[in-house]
């Protein structure tokens, strides 16, 4: 199945779910009342949008209802979706590699969000566009991280610049950059070790990597991509904030969206920090990373996950 086939398939399910959910909420209701708002708010909270953002969105919804004189409950979800799309910003996703050569993408994030996998998919994405790609293995901390990146490079058919485990990541970045320049690569993607955003020494290390890249090629890195796991809750806001402070993140990649996780926290991240979402990972296949599309994403936010019964223990 091709990329669009897959996309369509997952979205069919999403749409179906969404329609069902909407129906469940509005069916049999004649008027727009408090409990209807509350249910919409709960849907948002369960998608990890966060309580403040959820409240704000519903508040805006009330205002819109008043303004547009909406009386039919069935119109509400569409308006709410509109509001969320607004919150997500107008720009379309994706990372356009510009005139710069090499176009340098630095990938950062906390542990276990899928940085290396994202890089593999991203490399594939550009390779298929006929661009030459080089990867820099600057995750020198985690056991076997370099091997993992190399396996991806083999699959995609691109080169990896690496040192040994435990070496200085900034030095790897330095070498990668010079290799990319010498080999006239179109795109250089640099992997970094996962780190908790609260560890200031590790964040300093990241700053150094960025500094070295910028020194060797003015204007680079052209994209600093923060990878966020879609299962992450409100902590993603803190992650985005501190990574932005440290290295001035330019975009988000949302991974693991193929579970029941909704990744709604990116709405809050977009709103509070203004970091746009650029790519989303929707599956485990090598082709399953694609440019972010706000409309599809909002559809998925409203998809109903199975009602989880929680019993008191």
């Amino acid at each position: 199945m091709g990329f669009f086939g897959k996309l369509k398939e997952s979205l069919t399910k999403t749409r179906k779910n969404f329609v069902e959910k909407v129906e469940a909420i509005v069916t049999g209701r004649k008027i727009i009342d408090e409990s209807l708002y509350e249910e919409l708010e709960e849907t948002l909270i369960q998608a990890d949008v966060g309580i403040d953002t959820a409240l704000e969105l519903v508040e805006n919804l009330r205002a819109e209802v008043k303004k547009r004189k909406i009386g039919n409950p069935e119109e509400l979800p569409a308006v709410l979706k509109e509001l969320i799309q607004q919150a997500l910003g107008e720009e379309t996703g994706g990372i356009e590699t510009g005139a710069e050569q090499p176009f340098v993408i630095m990938v950062v994030g906390v542990n276990g969000v899928g940085k290396t996998t994202t890089i593999g998919k991203l490399a594939n994405f550009y390779k298929e566009q006929g661009k030459s790609v080089i990867m820099g293995a600057a995750d020198t901390f985690r056991a076997a991280a370099i091997d993992q990146l190399e396996i991806w490079a083999d699959r995609v058919g691109v080169q990896v610049i690496k040192h040994t485990e435990g070496s200085d990541p900034a030095a790897v970045a330095f070498d990668s950059l010079h290799a990319a320049k010498a080999r006239k690569a179109d795109v250089l993607i640099i992997d970094t070790a996962g780190r908790l955003h609260t560890k200031s020494n590790l964040m300093d290390e990241l700053k150094k990597v960025r500094r070295v890249i910028g020194r060797e090629l003015p204007g680079a890195p052209h994209e600093i991509l923060l990878v966020v796991d879609a299962t992450t809750g409100q902590n993603a806001i803190s992650q985005a904030k501190l990574f932005k402070e440290a290295v001035d993140v330019t975009g988000l990649a949302l991974t693991k969206l193929d579970g029941t996780a909704k990744g709604g926290v990116v709405v809050a991240v977009r709103q509070s920090l203004g970091i746009p979402i650029k790519m989303i990972g929707v599956g485990e296949g090598i082709d399953d990373l694609r440019p972010f599309n706000a409309k599809e994403f909002v559809d998925a936010l409203f998809a109903k996950s199975d009602k989880t019964e929680v019993q008191a223990v």
Partner: peptide, 14 residues
Amino acid sequence: VDSMTGQDAVNVAK
């Protein structure tokens, strides 16, 4: 379980 997991943690665990 990743302690940063959001609302989905219940689905995972369940």
